[in-house]
Amino acid sequence: MLDYSLDISAVERDLALPDLVAEGEELDALVSAEADWTQPTPAQGWTIAHQIAHLAAADANALIAIRTPEAFDTVLKQREAAGPHSADLEADAGAAKPRSVLLEQWREGRTELAAALRDIPLDRPFPWFGSDVTATLTVALRLMETWAHGQDIYDTLGVPHPPTTRLRHVASLGVAGIPLSFYAAQLPIPTVPFRVELTGPEGQTWVWGPEDAEQQVQGPALDFCLRVTQRRPLSDTALQATGADARKWLEIARVFL
């Protein structure tokens, strides 16, 4: 896993955690009002129930890592034994549960995780898939996943998903994911700096990188977040790139392996 720590260290946990909670509550309001969780989402083979099951399972795994880090080795071994389809199998198991049971499991899990992330010392690392992580990073990662999988559900139901300033956390991970994107594509990782300038949902400008960088990306923050979470093809965004590496990055952008 990519080490994001330097890129998002400025994101204060006490500021980001309420955003994570709000993101979960917003998605909860959407899915709890929808009776049919068997509808297929844009993720192949995944229904709405699969999307919620995936989020619930990830929250449960994070709780294990925080509360009993020595037991997380079992989670890693189970994931390795399941192979490349481990996430599908995990989601299948959760989606098979009654809707009411899965909804309550997700609610309880994300509430417990928020409390655990609030209480754990910032300087205490805990295990995760590929590397140790911190509470600050985990808050951003969980928010990103909640937003991205939520987007799949919004798309399924044909409901607008209004952007909020919470997208800044997703965008920060997207910028930090430049090396990961090239690594996953089996391409040389650029060593030159990138400049990313995004327009937030309230018209504000979010900036990363030096102003004089030759590799630059500009555009709406929503489009950038949809692209780096692979929810939209580049052709469906208004993103613009200057420089060969920047153009290639937008083609292969991702925030997860």
Score class of each variant (00 low, 15 high):
A71N: 12
E80P: 10
R118G: 11
G109F: 06
A82G: 05
W106R: 13
L102C: 10
A95F: 00
E112D: 14
T74I: 07
R110I: 06
A91D: 04
A91G: 08
G94F: 01
A95S: 05
L76P: 08
L102G: 03
V101S: 05
T111Y: 09
F72E: 10
G109W: 00
G109T: 01
S86P: 01
T111C: 12
E80K: 15
G109H: 05
T74V: 10
P84Y: 01
R99K: 07
T74H: 13
A71K: 13
A87T: 15
A96F: 02
E104L: 11
A82N: 07
K77L: 13
Q105A: 12
G83R: 02
K97I: 02
R99S: 01
D88C: 04
A81R: 12
P98R: 02
D88S: 08
R107T: 05
Q78M: 14
A81F: 07
E80A: 15
A95H: 02
R107L: 09
L76R: 15
G109D: 02
V101M: 05
Q78K: 14
T74K: 15
Q105W: 01
P84G: 08
E112V: 04
L117M: 09
A116F: 07
R99I: 01
A95Y: 02
A93G: 07
L102H: 01
T74G: 15
H85W: 05
L103T: 00
V101N: 01
A91Q: 05
L89Y: 06
R99T: 00
D73T: 13
R107K: 14
P84T: 05
A95Q: 03
A93Q: 14
V101G: 00
L113F: 04
E108F: 00
K77S: 15
L103H: 15
A115N: 09
T111V: 12
K77P: 02
R110H: 13
D88K: 11
V75I: 13
R99N: 01
H85A: 14
K77Y: 10
A91H: 02
G109S: 12
P84Q: 09
L76N: 08
S100W: 03
A115K: 09
T74P: 04
L103W: 10
E80Y: 08
L113D: 09
S100L: 09
L103E: 05
E90K: 12
A71W: 07
R107M: 06
R118N: 12
E108M: 07
P84N: 10
A82V: 04
R107Y: 08
R107C: 06
A114I: 00
L102M: 09
A93R: 13
R79W: 05
E108I: 04
A82E: 09
E90V: 04
P98S: 06
A96M: 10
A116D: 08
A116K: 08
Q105D: 07
E80F: 10
E112Q: 15
V75R: 03
L102R: 06
L89V: 03
A71S: 12
E90Q: 13
A95D: 06
E104N: 11
D92I: 01
K97F: 00
A95G: 05
E80V: 07
